[in-house]
Design a protein around this nucleic acid. Structure first.
Length: 478
RNA sequence: GGCCCGGUCGCCUAGCGGUCUAGGGCGCUUCCCUUUCAAGGAAGAGGUCAGGGGUUCGAAUCCCCUCCGGGCUACCA
């Protein structure tokens, strides 16, 4: 059992391709198979520097590992296609020798004109096989000196078919297929030649990739049979779509795994969420860790219809997974999202109180900022409850300060009853009293529970902030 | 245009001929809990199973047609 992930280093690791990689990963791990990472960089024009690092970073962060690859090595190294050129060239040549492919000397200009003419006549735009009938010997001679490509010689008749693991039987008539370029004039193979050769040479037992590849299957099938190889079983997974139903891309927002990481998403959440686009266990369970998925995921349950990206749902899963973390672990995960100068002991004390209030790790800082800085600017009006006024609010705060000042030790348990009775004495609802105090000490209307916030902030700072609030109120309208 | 692949609540989906008066989750609404906000609990709105024909005692489930959406149609992957 050998399966591969075959990303192209044309940009950051895409969230949609992660779903495909995940399914490959699960499939192989369940069968104790071997996972191969192969970099398909046959288009030199589209290479993006750093893309391979991004793939490695992203997959490692998500907890996906593999056995053979560019950095890991393996029995079929190298695992980067641009380093395997002679292999493809040799095979392309072999196809020419077998009469399954031919040299084509048509210029890109001729091809462009041809296409334009076909379009003008509303004909199918495809290569007119202009070079297909050049005598072999003559073509071979010209190939020595002329720029050329090698094209696949597609038969005029016949049916090509696969039994796709997710779609079932799919078939094509040979006469609908173009004489595909296999080897480009720069000596690089096209995707079509490279995948087939590599999948065969690397002994890939199951080809599982995105749905966008089904159209190229018949071309691959032809190559397999020209070489006399058996095509392995294939599965084409449905696409992850944008909200508009088109393939998910940057214009729908960020698609880079690294971006989700920076935005405070947990790898557990991303994996859980992604696994459920296009697959369902058939039960009502839906919270799955990677280990759970390893247990229950089945390729037979993979859907054939594409699924749309739903940010709200991802956020929900992120919340679920944040809540499942231990406090220590959450503190660890929060590390990159919290300024280095913030006291980690304080952080650890407040985290239990914001754990169920975070949608993302990134949300935390704003909620607890008041504990680490005195810079909590707000408008004094916000201190005043709806049905109250400046004078009474100032008085309520003064009394709060007096009450709080007498509490020792300064803990939530002791603060609670004192403020509750104070509210009664003042004749305010707890909501109003606490709201005013919350604004005074945090500068915000919402946040972690008040009594705990006071405790963690500490008596001294709490009193000082309430005092500042009183001064603000006394200062009149601002 | 051609070739393929799809089409169940706004979204992710269960469903594989009768148990479906179509189930769950997200989101939304209301209520409860409650020191704010969340979280949690409860209830609810939301689906002519794309449409139309068949087949069958019986169809979301099988067949055909139509419509709609998507992918591919490059010396890109």
């Amino acid at each position: 059992m050998r399966v591969r992930f075959a990303p192209s280093p044309t940009g950051a690791l895409h969230i949609g391709s992660v779903r495909t990689i995940l399914y490959n990963y699960l499939f192989a791990r369940q069968r104790e198979g071997t996972l191969i990472l192969r970099v398909e960089d046959t288009d030199q024009d589209r290479l993006v520097a750093g893309a391979i690092d991004s793939i490695y970073d992203g997959l490692h962060w998500l907890g996906i590992t593999w056995h053979e690859g560019p950095q890991e090595g393996g029995p079929h190294a190298p695992y980067v296609q641009s380093e395997r050129l002679p292999l493809y060239q040799k095979h392309a040549q072999e196809l020419v020798d077998k009469g399954a492919a031919y040299y084509c000397f048509c210029s890109k200009e001729r091809l462009a004109v041809l296409r334009a003419e076909q379009e003008a006549r509303h004909e199918i735009t495809r290569y007119d096989r202009h070079c297909r009938n050049i005598p072999a010997a003559e073509a071979a001679e010209r190939a020595k000196v002329e720029s050329h490509v090698i094209r696949q010689k597609v038969p005029d008749e016949g049916t090509l078919a696969i039994e796709d693991l997710v779609h079932g039987r799919i078939e094509w008539q040979a006469n609908t297929i173009e004489d595909q370029v296999l080897l480009k004039s720069d000596g690089f193979p096209t995707y079509h030649l490279a995948v087939v050769v590599d999948d065969h040479v690397m002994e890939i037992s199951h080809i599982m990739r995105g749905e966008e590849w089904v159209a190229s299957v018949p071309k691959h099938l032809l190559i397999y049979s020209a070489f006399g190889w058996d095509a392995p079983p294939m599965a084409h997974f449905p696409s992850v779509l944008g909200p508009d139903g088109k393939k998910l891309s940057k214009r729908h927002g960020s698609t880079a795994v690294s971006q989700f990481r920076e935005d405070g998403y947990l790898p557990e959440a991303l994996i859980n969420y992604l696994a459920l686009i296009g697959w369902s266990p058939g039960t009502e369970e839906e919270i799955f860790s990677m280990d759970d998925l390893m247990r229950v995921w089945k390729i037979e349950q993979v859907q054939s219809a594409g699924g749309k990206w739903d940010k709200d749902r991802l956020d929900y899963f992120n919340g679920v997974w944040i809540r499942k973390l231990s406090v220590d672990e959450l503190v660890r995960r929060l590390e990159p999202f919290v300024p280095a100068e913030w006291d980690r002991e304080v952080l650890k004390r407040i985290v239990p109180h914001i754990q169920e209030r975070m949608k993302t790790l990134k949300d935390a800082a704003e909620q607890i900022r008041f504990l680490f800085t005195d810079d909590i600017g707000y408008e004094s009006n916000l201190l005043i409850p709806k049905k109250s006024d400046r004078i009474s609010t100032a008085e309520a705060l003064a009394r709060s300060r007096a009450v709080l000042g007498g509490i020792e030790p300064f803990t939530a348990d002791l603060i609670r009853p004192m403020l509750e009775t104070l509210a009664e004495q003042v004749g305010w609802s707890r909501k109003d009293l606490n709201g005013a105090i919350r604004m005074a000490i945090t500068g915000r209307q919402v946040g972690p529970p008040l009594y705990e916030s006071l405790e963690v902030l500490g008596k001294e700072k709490s009193l000082r902030r309430i005092e500042m609030a009183q001064e603000l109120l006394a200062g009149g309208r601002d």
